[in-house]
Design a protein around this nucleic acid. Structure first.
Lengths: 206, 206
DNA sequence: TCGTTCACTGGTCACTTGAACAGTCTGGAG
DNA sequence: CTCCAGACTGTTCAAGTGACCAGTGAACGA
């Protein structure tokens, strides 16, 4: 990209450049895959959004499949970091307040990262190799961590409660363009986010 | 397909054959579009699932775009028929029972037709021509019919309540393969459907 | 019975797709 | 300064992609 024409040491090292480029590609991939699905997203469009050419994708990630995995790793990683961060700040609260606040934080995360839910829905639909990878590599771990967060009952209702939480807390933001046109509400506004977070939290922890 | 080799009048007329073929194609299109999205679904795969060849799709529907619209019409039409049917059976009930039962019926519909939600999410993600068509042609009408169903509050909470209902009542069934692998629960079992319908109804109408 | 209509087939078109690869240029080690 | 690993580019290739269209044969009207 930016050429070093002087003889001073470069602002960024080669390794940093490389990492930055990879990062840019993964970011574009998250967007594209979440908007168009695996088959619908083309590596050329991803390269275009990342500001490079298609050949570079094969270079950094061996295949479209590997790029998709990197994209999934990234979005799930962001969720986990956010949850962990929030957990330490809620040390001494009583269980109900804790649960409500964790739900609120989950909703806020979805508002900022609608790609997470889109990935889950996109991949959950068909019983293919990517769905199995996503479940085994990431979702199982998240699902089993739920009781530690002080959320929901163990037992036969757990799957239902899980998908109610995920659905209720995510769809509004995942279909933001549709919501704007259908209802006039802008789901990305601070007000809408907090209203929704509060509604979901109060519904699930009365 | 089946040739008439005798000289008796055919079992089905030409017009019936035509309609049956169109129907088969639309059905396959609903499946494919809901699994793979608009760009990810290929007309050849749709033709294959419908048991014909790709040329026939251009013959019956001018373009992939028109086929997609026919698929959307079909799935929304099925929802409306189901809702209307349920409404007449709930004539004399009190409002809360009515609302709960309408929610239950909505959940049951999603269990049998996960394509509806997939269509909504698939199209709601990006602000393109198909999303606008879907909102203007179908969703606006559905959204504005909600108060007549005795559901949810008008006012500023309506968009939030709408997307909570849609999300909570649909996701479990839309990602059924994922759910089976992740939780062990089979969302297509009668027991799971009724449990989920009851949970959502009780959450939204306490 | 005959001629026409039309649902349907199979092949072709220009174009896009993911992958592969031979080059190019440059940061950084020696 | 020299030189090379390696980040990056542009092109090429086979396998799809949606649209189009000339044919085919059975159903149907006369």
């Amino acid at each position: 990209m930016a050429c070093q024409t002087n003889n001073l040491p470069p602002v960024t090292t080669r390794a940093e450049q490389r990492e930055e480029t990879r990062e840019r590609i993964v970011e574009a991939a998250v967007e594209c895959f979440s908007e168009r699905g695996f088959r619908g997203a083309s590596t050329r469009e991803i390269a275009g959004r990342a500001g490079t050419n298609q050949g570079l994708i094969t270079y950094h990630f061996r295949s479209k499949d590997d790029l998709w995995k990197a994209a999934a790793d990234r979005i799930v990683g962001q969720l986990e970091a956010r949850i962990r961060e929030r957990l330490v700040r809620l040390g001494g609260e009583d269980p109900r307040t804790r649960a409500r606040e964790m739900i609120r934080e989950f909703v806020r995360f979805n508002a900022g990262h609608p790609e997470l839910f889109r990935f889950m829905v996109e991949q959950g639909k068909s019983d293919d190799i990517r769905m199995r990878w996503l479940v085994d590599t990431h979702l199982k771990r998240l699902y089993e961590a739920i009781p530690q967060l002080g959320l929901g009952a163990e037992g036969p209702l757990k799957p239902h409660a899980f998908y109610v939480l995920v659905g209720a807390g995510s769809v509004l933001f995942s279909v933001a363009p549709e919501c704007r046109r259908l209802t006039g509400l802008d789901p990305s506004s601070q007000d809408a986010i907090e209203t929704h977070a509060d509604l979901v939290a109060r519904l699930l922890v009365p």
